[in-house]
Design a protein around this nucleic acid. Sequence first.
RNA 1: GGUCUCUUGGCCGAGUGGCUAGGCAGCGGUCUGCAAAACCGUGAACGGCGGUUCGAAUCCGCCAGAGACCUCCA
Length: 514
Amino acid sequence: MNTDFVIYNTLSRKKEVFKPLFEGKVGLYICGPTVYSNSHLGHARPNITFDLLFRYLTFLGYKVRYVRNITDVGHLEDEVEGSGEDKISKKARLEQLEPMEVVQKYMNSFHHNMGQLNVLPPGIEPRASGHIIEQQLMIETILKNGFGYENNGSVYFDVEKYNQLYKYGKLSGRNLDDLKTNTRELEGQSEKKNPFDFALWKKASPEHIMRWPSKWGEGFPGWHLECSAMSTKYLGEQFDIHGGGMDLIFPHHECEIAQSTASLGHETVRYWMHNNMITIDGQKMARSLGNFITLQELFTGKHKLLKQAYTPMTIRFFILQAHYRSTIDFSNEALLASEKGLERLMNAGKTLDELSASEKSTVDIPLLKEKCFAALSDDLNSPIAIAHLFDGVRIINSVKAGTEKISADDMTELKSFFHSVVFDILGLKQEQTTHLGESEILKGTVELLIRLRQEAKANKDWATSDKIRNELNSIGIEMKDTKYGVDWKIKAPPGLPEGEECASNKKENFMFGR
RNA sequence: GGUCUCUUGGCCGAGUGGCUAGGCAGCGGUCUGCAAAACCGUGAACGGCGGUUCGAAUCCGCCAGAGACCUCCA
């Protein structure tokens, strides 16, 4: 493979050939979650996108230092003086928990969900709360360099001053004049020189429970500082790639650039990558908009918008079927299409192991492979790569059917290619179909019925065998004869109103016979 | 209001100045006692109006619609 790996750099708004700072090594920093509630479908997107990036870089032979932070200090909900309260402490009050208990709970839940989605853990997962000193030191440097000012126990970044030497707004394509006219004036911003200045350190009000001592008084770090401090600590004063959601471009990443530049005198990030949003009815899915579906809800089907449960791999495949810089619109139809498509892809993987080789190939495996990797190297074009995989699926099935032939060498090549792309790079996996909550009694009963039906079939007693299948179907158990045996699953029980909690689509691929 | 992006067949989604995206659904077939599944094959699209061009869905302009950011957000 000689193709260059090209990535879209938000900073230049162009695709650029990726050249790491140090030969063979990549420093990668991803903005992780703020852990104050369960992860939703929207969170799956950056994590899967950058998991794909990490996996692909690794596949290309790079040694990747992969850092993804956990925000556990809490960003301010608003800046209204006196009522400033961060998300984590607010949640803590509601749930009567220690802030760190909340953090732990949702961090665990996040890790669990990521594991289900087969998202690989980063090499370093630093927490903002564990890097207060680093953040304070950075503030001191920024103050020393003249880009910040202290007022009433809080420290702010002086954007105007910064803009005189550097350009504030280069990542998001803004200029300060526009910001001056368009930044909303919020109440109680009298501490700031300008409304677009942002906090580096914020004085904690008496009721604020997350607080640390500092030379400016008790308080907590500003919202953007942790990423600047921690990325520098673990990846150095300059590193290759920084990723995150598009909604973080402004102000979060813009502020990061300003902070890093103000303290170091130069920028730290070489390539900025941003994933687009998941939409629902055409609108961004977000916690603040209340239109989100948690991953847990998706996996269990317990949400009023869900017609059924979707497995983690279906979600992963759904996300990979769109390019990361496009929006994807959520719908049951789209997810169902992904579920079916994924099944087809995975079945082909199994079929691949059953193929027999011929003298010569009638199919072009090297070309397939080349096209697929070209797509991945073109700014991680996973939908195109998947389209080529489906060409591979057709080849596999056609060879199986005898309408195409494949040589032994090509078959080895195809197997290795298929395995690399599907499992190692796209990070898909064969899902263990489990019986979520289904009782052993039910399982035993269905197995008994299957056995009775097999016997009826053996006797060509079609009346009985159809009766068993049809009546099970009418009470909500679907039975299918496959070439490997009998496949059954519980489908949505009839008569349940839309959105009612039900054990729909708990897939049970119990293979009976053979 | 400012900045930016998008508008593709029934649905989801790629891509491109002339050459099949792909998946799902539909349709036709193979297989099967039947059904389903599986597999093979297949029709169908580029918001509207102008312009540039031998040729535009792809480039430019205008219009319409949708969205993102401008406050926390993945």
